[in-house]
Amino acid sequence: MNIVIIDYGAGNIQSIKFALKRLGYDAILSDDPEIIKAADRVIFPGVGEAGSAMKMLKDKRLHELIPKLQQPVLGICLGMQLMCNYSEEGKTEGLGIFDTEVKKFNKDLKVPQIGWNTIKNLQTSLFQDVSENEYVYLVHSFYVAECEHEIAQTNYGVDYSCALHKENFYGVQFHPEKSSKAGEKILENFLKLELRS
C-alpha cells in the first residue's frame, strides 16, 4: 500500500512513520502534489500554530490540493483542525472540508489539555474493535466545536468533536501514533477502510 504523509514542515512526522512501520507499512513523506495525489492513503499531520501551518500549506499550494483528494485522508491533531472552516487560533481560514469551527478552551481549564482522555459515541469503521470510552493521548489548546461530522466525542470542560468524518476525509484530534494499542488499532482501521464511491 502506498501511504503518503504530507510533509509541510509542521509536526512530529517521525512518530507517525514509526507507528506505521510497527504495523508493517512503510510511508513516504512528501510535499509533491503528484505523489500525494497518487497515494492509496494520505495522512495529514500537524503540530504547532494554525496560522503559520496554514501559511506553510499555502506556500506549497497544498491548500488547493487537499480538499480535492479522492482517497482516504486522515488529519491528525492540527491537521484535523485545519480541515475545518475556521480556527480562532491566529484567526485562520481553514480548508473548509468539515463544516465547523475550531475554538479555544475556556480560560478556567488548564491549557493545553495534555494527557489521556476518553472517546465515546464512536462511529464508522475507523473505530472498529475500539471500545467506547477508550483512552487516547491528546495535546491541544483548541478544540473542534460539535458538528454533524462528529464520529467521536470527548469532554474537557465542554463536549467537543474528537474525530470527524465526511466522505473520504477523516480527522482525529488525538495522536493515534502515541495512543498505545488503541491508537495502533485506529491507524490500522484507517489503512483498511474501503471507499464507497
Partner: peptide
C-alpha cells in the same frame, strides 16, 4: 531518541 521513538507507542 530515534531508537526509542521507533519502538514506543506512548509519548
Amino acid at each position: 531518541v530515534l531508537k526509542v521513538a521507533e519502538k514506543l507507542n506512548i509519548p
